[in-house]
Nucleic acid binder design. Structure first.
Lengths: 216, 216
DNA sequence: CTAGAAGTGGATAGCTCTGCTCCGTTTCTC
DNA sequence: GAGAAACGGAGCAGAGCTATCCACTTCTAG
């Protein structure tokens, strides 16, 4: 695959600087860094960035492979936790934790329309695992039966929003929001009686589609 | 106050068209409509819009007076509901309902930095009323004691995020998100025992400050 | 009906912000 | 030290926004 000759030593050095700078920048600022931003951060000319990464998408992809791997590792670790509820919580909290320190990752997982491919690949690996986590939590009676898989993207979305706004000022506020939400989802069957306006079943995978932010 | 002569009849007609168009546009698109957008929507020249509303802020303010009034009416109506829990829910759901149909209103209440004055005025009237709603809900034991006033801006924020993303595709999804969250907040004292990582008290008004989106 | 005041439209100038290219200069490598 | 490779960043093109200006149309008072 890599039929191209190795780069000259200085060029390779610059490539690394660009990657490092882009990485930091994306984590701090988010997905929509420009070639110019990166060049400045890497102390390199714009031209150099364009030469090395003519397509911004490729650069982004390169940056995110490892991040997505981290999430996948997390989901797999969570599946190994014996207590189902703890496992589910570990995944959700861990995922948000990762996103709390990495605006770019959050952007990616929120799927702003851009970056669909990479995000979808990740979702495809994460989806089944989450379903399993939820299934186990249901089976053990620790998760309210009227809360379904489809609700967890909502949780991500909701707590992610808090995260987003409080990032600078109180970077741990999202934990409280998450704790309160999850605590509400905790097992106890819905009161048989006055469940009038109570939300019913498990919305299907449609919710995931809904949360794909509409491309502006 | 209104020392200016009345407008010529056609001018007044145009003024109304502009106002109407701007109103619809703001509801649909959000707070940052331009003079050009408005002109096109009103089928009027840009010049006309500029002549009538040289300062965009004034136009926006004019549009929002009535919206804010609607929220205030809501809060007051909610206080009149005898059952404290229903009252609290009515306010929160109603508020989100209003925002669901009106992107501009949502922008305003989220306080994106712009429009601070108007939003703050609204907040000042709404704040005490919400505190009262929460107090009553606590007193009646219908609201978990470890959920405080400060948590409701979080709820707005969270459900607002869902609202935002699903607006186009499934405009009622936010209801489920809200129902699940509120249902989780419902009275039952926190389990005395294993409340290890459970969120504790009522964060103060600091949260409101946090949710003021940091001016970009 | 008419004169002239009031109002209109929208082309356009000026600005900012972005993506990207191009080529004179520097740096590497053999 | 010659020639290939890489560099830097000024600057161009294009999009989008604000705001102005003035030849033309529409209203209204008399």
């Amino acid at each position: 695959m890599d039929g191209s000759k190795p780069l000259r030593r200085d060029a390779e050095r610059n490539r690394q600087r660009i990657l490092a700078a882009a990485n930091a920048l994306v984590a701090e600022v988010g997905l929509d860094v420009t070639h110019n931003d990166i060049a400045r951060a890497a102390e390199v000319g714009v031209g150099t960035v364009y030469r090395r990464f003519p397509d911004r998408q490729e650069l982004i992809d390169e940056l995110f492979d490892q991040r997505v791997d981290r999430i996948i590792a997390l989901v797999e670790a969570s599946l190994l936790i014996e207590d189902p509820w703890s496992g589910l919580c570990a995944f959700i909290a861990g995922n948000l934790e990762l996103q709390a320190g990495d605006k770019g990752l959050k952007d990616l997982m929120a799927g702003d329309g851009r970056t669909t491919d990479l995000a979808k690949r990740a979702q495809r690996r994460i989806g089944p695992a989450v379903r399993e986590l939820v299934r186990r939590a249901h089976a053990s009676g620790q998760l309210r039966p009227d809360v379904g898989v489809g609700d967890f993207p909502l949780v991500q979305e909701m707590v992610g929003a808090v995260l987003e706004h409080s990032r600078r000022i109180d970077p741990d506020l999202w934990r409280r929001a998450l704790a309160l939400v999850l605590d509400g989802y905790r097992g106890r069957r819905p009161a048989a009686g006055a469940a009038a306006g109570r939300p019913r079943p498990t919305p299907g995978p449609r919710i995931e589609q809904v949360l794909e932010r509409p491309p502006r």
